[in-house]
Write a protein that binds this DNA or RNA. Structure first.
Lengths: 196, 196, 196, 196
DNA sequence: ATCTAAACGAGACGGTACGTCGAGTCTTACC
DNA sequence: GGTAAGACTCGACGTACCGTCTCGTTTAGAT
């Protein structure tokens, strides 16, 4: 029952400095331009310390996301009893956040990183959509029970559609503004045929 | 109106070989791992010939897209009179294409490239969604006139939602399968509340 | 017996401009740093025009020397009847010329070029030492006949010694000044043992 | 007085391999044709390791000379009491060495390098003539005291004359053979007027 | 006076090497 | 044994020139 090794523990100072430097750099120069040497220099840390604990640039980014240092997860708003209103509030807020170019740039960095690192992709989507998806699933079921909606659509599909729209807009840089939130939520609930 | 100068014209052979090599490499190794030296070697071309005509890796990719060498634009199917069926067919097809890992990998490469090159993003989205958006807008208007639908939703929003879903699925690698196409199109037309 | 070709003759204008540009550039930037593209640009001439008539950078330089554009051959002074005085005047003059840094730099360029182009070396030494050697041989023989000297030393050896000293001084950049001319000529005639 | 930092020391293995590769290549292909990439490849060393420690191709060559890897300094022979004989032995040996084309080629490389790098020139001449000049100066003075010679000629001038002849012969590739050694040394001591 | 073929200016081509950056690994001294 | 520092090998970057190859234009004979 003795401790496994009488040795120096990992430096929390170094770990924190690395994550902070990564968070700053990805926003400043973008994912592609961010180098591990740059992170090490900014964090006053040896490169080996990074390679000892992470296997790639995107893995550090993944840990930043898990720590909530970047893209803090936007929770679904508290249940007001009206799923439609709740989603609308949430979606408007999400689109509003993208008005800040720094946030948009950061999300592009994450998308770029996720595109060629499946592990980061998994972490990212678990982190970003996991909580929402869980409560979304619960609420959809509840709303179905209440007769509020009548659909076999899975929570995954709804999430996919909403997040997909966000990501698409970020990538296309079309800057369409948050006004489309209303139209999309309307369509989501009423369909193109409109409410009766 | 004078011609700039009488000199050796640009080699079409080189241009074509570069685009072909790029198309192959981005699918084989991904956008990040693809190097300009690799393209030059594969195309039997001097590096300078690439740098003379393109300013970046992503610019070559953009030209590949414009030439239709990669991701040939999937047109909306001919108008059968039923917009819903047409969209369903189109969306199923698009999702089906992503079943091929090569296509998925290629799309991830394009997304990654678009994330840090606004110019490529513009070309890509113009090329990929432009034709669809035009006919989509026409059909939406037509369907509205026919009473088939009743929505103020713009064609851009519809496109955004459908393409966003595709991109999101590609990035998340969740491999959900094409079955969700039906659910999404149902929701798009009927809403979560279902058809009456 | 017909002329070989009824065609446009070589452009003297281009030839002259190329030689002039070469002369200027080798003095300005040195032999190694001088590029054929640079010569072509400076002479407002196509590269092909250079390659059509010369096979290398050093070949152009060789022609410059032959044209007397650089390092105009310093002739032995007229025969005053006293070989020793004549040589002293000549050698002092030669060392004096090297006081001009431009001349020194140019000679270093020629040496560098000659070091890896045997053809240029041949032209250069033929041109630079040929005339001197011929008259030197005659004078040595004459002086020997007059009893002025008494040596089996060939004119080649004398030339070699005098020019060698010049080249060596240029390369070593020791900047010893022209005063050593007297000592060397004294030694050449009287030997280390001194005149009796 | 603090040490700069405790870090990985320079690799002696790499340094040695680089110098050896340079020594081989300069003899094989000549100074101009020798590339830094070629040295790096031959030495199994990254280019950066070369650029980290040397600022140019000629600087590496200079270090080779300093290490005695190329052109090991030919010492004056032990003092037999007869300066003239000693110089003759030395000069014959030096000219004999140039009979080996590899040595001649190597010396041409060094001359070419020295022509456009003053630093290398300084190292080269310090290294090649320094030891000889010192002992030469001593012997000249001694011989003068003994009445063997009677000349104000400095050791520098003698060195210049002898080395100059060697360099000149190398550059002109006239391949005159070592027989001229006797004539030159005769002249050096007796003068053109011959011994009395 | 027209014809014609090589020389010309320009510059794109396939390459080689440059000197720099960063990747991921290693070797120090220090803690 | 973890850490800061930084040297190591390696590969790619974007640039400069190499020597070759088209282009359209120019120009001096030969007809």
């Amino acid at each position: 029952m003795s401790e496994p090794s009488p040795t120096r523990p990992r430096s929390e100072r170094a770990r924190t400095a690395i994550l902070a430097a990564t968070r700053d750099l990805v926003a400043e120069v973008g994912y592609e331009q961010m180098s591990i040497e740059g992170i090490a220099a900014r964090a006053h840390v040896g490169k080996q310390t990074i390679y000892r604990w992470w296997k790639s640039k995107s893995a550090i980014l993944a840990e930043c996301v898990l720590e909530g240092l970047i893209l803090p997860s936007r929770e679904l708003p508290p249940d007001t009893g009206d799923l439609r209103d709740d989603l609308l509030v949430w979606f408007r807020g999400a689109l509003h956040e993208l008005g800040d170019p720094a946030n948009a740039s950061l999300l592009r960095g994450l998308v770029s990183a996720a595109a060629d690192d499946p592990d980061l992709a998994a972490v990212l989507y678990e982190r970003l959509t996991g909580p929402q998806e869980a409560s979304m699933a619960a609420r959809l079921r509840e709303a179905e029970a209440d007769g509020e909606i009548d659909s076999a659509l899975t929570s995954t599909a709804v999430i996919e559609m909403l997040f997909g729209t966000i990501v698409y807009r970020i990538l296309s840089r079309l800057d369409v503004g948050p006004d489309l939130a209303d139209g999309l939520i309307d369509t989501l609930f009423d369909g193109l045929r409109g409410a009766k």
